[in-house]
Nucleic acid binder design. Structure first.
Length: 551
RNA sequence: GCGCCUAUAGCUCAAUGGACAGAGUGUUGCCCUCCGAAGGCAAAGAUAGUGGUUCGAUUCCACUUAGGCGCACCA
């Protein structure tokens, strides 16, 4: 078992919180205690201790007396207000390194992460941009968040499916077809003066597509043009996402819901449950709870067409029926007003609210050298995801967008992200990896060989402060992953990796390996560096970022 | 007007009601006859304002100020 998870279990047991290891918090001690302690916990006072009526400090003392950690810690101290500080013993620290080396690319293997709060099953829906144009930069954050969460949950043994909901019917798609038909008249039928409808799509991508079409299409058949545009744009979207390492298990088309009449079926279901009224020729969803603001919404317009809201209810009913666990949707913050409406609709359908979760990702403001990038939407031109990804590179893009919690706005400076220098934290991390690989390369080149390599005796870790700090940092890797899973944000991992890289660079300055005369020491350092490399590579892998061997 | 999100170091960002609020970058000064100086060490530098709840508030509540977003028979 991994060191900090073992500590969690011991703490949970002593607090009487066996069933919920997620309520135990373990963190690195503050700087002024780092020489004496390796890990620190505020234990479970609020969850378990407060009810006992004891003061925080008394409670902590009691936990200290009852906790069973003799095998991993050689010192425990209580610090006010209710901290328990631990110093790990040598065997436990050696085990951290050994475990990392043994598990390699799978480190940390966690056999059952559920007690720590990881869900058993998740259906993640994200991106879901309308196929009416190429993905723009605004779609990047949610896409990268969704993909990264998928990687993190999968690592924890959660069964994860990802899904892209394609809004391929409705007024916007009609506009798209009309716009393409207009371009077709201009480019293929020689009607250069024919104009694109005022509310149509003006982007150059439709011109390019029109030019590729054969001469035998009927420009009045908008549906045909809608289909052509849709298909072309979806392919482009898939390709752009692939470019930033994002893929989906399923592309769910709204049109499929209509084919089976499932949208009208959901309206009828709501009607039979008494949530429907008719007014002004339209069919409305009406909540029984009059205290809600969002109590009336149109399900079917007076022209007989159903609304997006109705489709979405049908879609979610479908998701609820085929997936067993959490349904997590990642939406742009501009959809926040839609969340209560959705929840009311799902509640009316009797679908379990606790399975439905929305992560709202706030806007990213694009900057260039400290100045906001001004976008002109008038001509239909905007910064596409592809352009930005190609300009700054996938690694920097993913690292930056994952470095802040989703519900906080983010400034993304193109020039800063592009700099292949220390100004960009992703390079600090990648550099640490490349540096370690370089040591390994150098070892081969110099034909350095230590007797311990063949006999495989357990290596003896050094116990100086910097070595301890590095090993303990490695031990915190599982905690960083669990924080991401629990709080639905990968920024704990990006921050962790920056810390780890820094700790490594610091260690490296004072711990020579290839030039170390003492074979024992050299060997132990070499293995510790390899363990650090593994953690960095695995961490970057979870973020979808490369771990370069040379830079 | 109503609602949602945000406000922390010069800049970009962390911090689960608990310890002396942390990183990166920028500024200043040091460190390469030594495995990658894309690095390390050191210094200076922050909770928007006013109240409240609490043993304890960056965190919760109220108000103020500032920014972003939303309030469709669009999706």
């Amino acid at each position: 078992m991994h060191l900090l998870i073992e500590l969690r279990r011991a703490l949970a047991h002593a607090c009487g919180l066996q069933e919920s290891l997620k309520d135990i918090f373990i963190e690195p001690p503050p700087e002024f205690l780092q020489e004496s302690f390796d890990a620190s916990s505020r234990i479970g006072y609020l969850k378990a201790g407060k009810a006992s009526g004891k003061k925080p400090l008394e409670w902590a003392e009691e936990i200290k007396r009852t906790i069973s950690v003799q095998t991993i810690a050689d010192k425990i101290e209580v610090h006010p207000p209710a901290y328990l500080n631990f110093r790990f013993n040598r065997a436990a620290l050696s085990a951290v390194v050994r475990q990392a080396l043994e598990e390699g690319g799978d480190y940390p293997k966690i056999s059952d992460a559920r007690p720590m709060g990881a869900p058993q099953e998740v259906l993640l829906e994200f991106c879901s941009a309308n196929p009416t144009g190429p993905l723009h930069f605004g779609h990047a954050r949610g896409s990268i968040l969704g993909d990264t969460l998928k990687r993190i949950y999968e690592h924890l043994g959660t069964s994860v499916k990802t899904e892209y909901y394609v809004n391929d019917v409705g007024m916007q798609i009609e506009r798209l077809g009309k716009s393409l038909a207009a371009r077709y008249r201009q480019k293929i039928l020689g009607q250069a003066d024919f104009s694109v409808p005022e509310d149509g799509y003006l982007g150059e991508y439709l011109v390019t597509l029109a030019e590729k079409l054969g001469p035998s299409l009927d420009p009045e058949n908008f549906g045909q043009f809608s289909d052509l545009a849709k298909k072309d744009l979806l392919a482009a979207i898939e390709k752009d996402l692939e470019g930033i390492g994002v893929g989906f298990d399923r592309w769910f088309c709204e049109s499929d819901l209509h084919k089976d009449n499932r949208v009208t079926a959901v309206i009828e279901r709501l009607r039979s449950l008494g949530f429907v009224t008719e007014k002004d020729g339209a069919i409305w969803f009406e909540t029984k709870d009059s205290s809600k603001e969002d109590k009336e919404r149109v399900l079917r317009k007076k022209d007989g067409k159903t609304t997006y809201f109705a489709s979405d209810l049908a879609y979610h009913q479908d998701k609820f029926s085929r997936a067993g666990g959490l349904l997590i949707n990642i939406w742009g913050a501009d959809h926040h007003g839609y969340v209560p409406r959705m929840k009311l609709g799902l509640a009316a359908l009797g679908l379990a609210a606790e399975r439905f979760e929305v992560i709202l990702v706030q806007m990213v403001r694009l900057m260039r050298n400290g100045q906001p990038v001004v976008l002109s939407k008038r001509s239909g031109d905007y910064l596409t995801l592809k352009e930005i990804a190609e300009e700054v590179g996938n690694d920097a893009l993913r690292f930056f967008l994952n470095s802040r919690s989703p519900n906080a706005q983010l400034d993304f400076d193109l020039e800063a992200a592009k700099k292949k220098s220390s100004e960009n934290p992703v390079y600090l991390v990648q550099y640490a990896h490349a540096r370690i690989v370089s040591i390994q390369r150098e070892k081969e080149a110099r034909r350095v060989h230590w007797p311990q390599e063949n006999s495989k005796p357990p290596f003896e870790l050094e116990e100086d402060a910097k070595s301890r700090l590095l090993v303990v940092s490695l031990a915190f890797f599982p905690e960083a992953i669990l924080s991401c899973a629990l709080r639905r944000s990968p920024h704990y991992l990006t921050n962790y990796l920056v810390d780890l890289a820094r700790t490594f660079h610091n260690y490296y300055e004072t711990h020579p390996i290839l030039s170390e005369k003492n074979d024992q020491l050299a060997w132990a350092r070499y293995k510790l560096c390899e363990a650090a490399r593994l953690v960095i590579a695995n961490g970057l892998g979870l973020l979808g970022i490369s771990a370069p061997e040379r830079m």
